[in-house]
Write a protein that binds this DNA or RNA. Sequence first.
DNA 1: ATGGTCGGGTGCCGA
Length: 259
Amino acid sequence: MRIATWNVNGIRARLHAVPAWLDQARPDVLLLQEIKSADAAFPAAAFEDRGYGVATHGQKGFNGVAILSRLPVEDVVRGLPGDAGDGQARWIEATVTGRRAVRVVSLYLPNGNPAPGPKYDYKLAWMARAEARAAALLATEEAVLLGGDWNVIPAPGDAARPAAWEGDALFLPASRAAFRRFLNLGLTDAVATFCPGPGHYTFWDYQALAFERNDGIRIDHLLLSPQAADRMSDAGIAAEVRAGERPSDHVPVWVELDD
DNA sequence: ATGGTCGGGTGCCGA
């Protein structure tokens, strides 16, 4: 079972790139972030035509997450628990069943800039809520995968120019410590496992020829529970997608699980 | 060199 995550930066602006990558990479499940679409405006037919079911948790204009799956999907839950007043669409869960089941989450963690400030406070509070939800999912002892745009650079080797990110909400010590708390729950970073060492990036800014200079960062992550991690056989980053026409600023990240 | 680039909620904001 191949599961991928991709921050598409607007699903309607990516209606050339996403179907093309599905046709080429054939993931069983694709977790999407920043669909920037209300549920009713999501272009589901482009994916249903390719055999993918669609579950969205969107909002008009920004944020928004979705799960595309060509395997059966059950028990969709929309929204991150813990704050009834949070109207931002950044979290969707579902159970995907091949020969065995996996509980998957598509998450879009808040950017948090400028830091310090209310946006950074929201980021850290959101991460604490997500950690509590992750702990509850791990307590089920089922295979669980949390994938998405985590908006955290875990370590200096995950940025081409780490000094340029000092003071940024994606790289502040408190952001990195909060990310490590997920790992310390017992989750495994799939790409860190199969692509060890520095220099593996998933995002390159649109400005200043960042991709051409390989001035990237690794912020899109797939974190797996022990029951899911035991089934991993490979993982990687589809960096070539960034060289395509009108690309997202993020590229797909994928993991292969034994069925 | 005080800009540069995207997508969308627009004629600006978030990233």
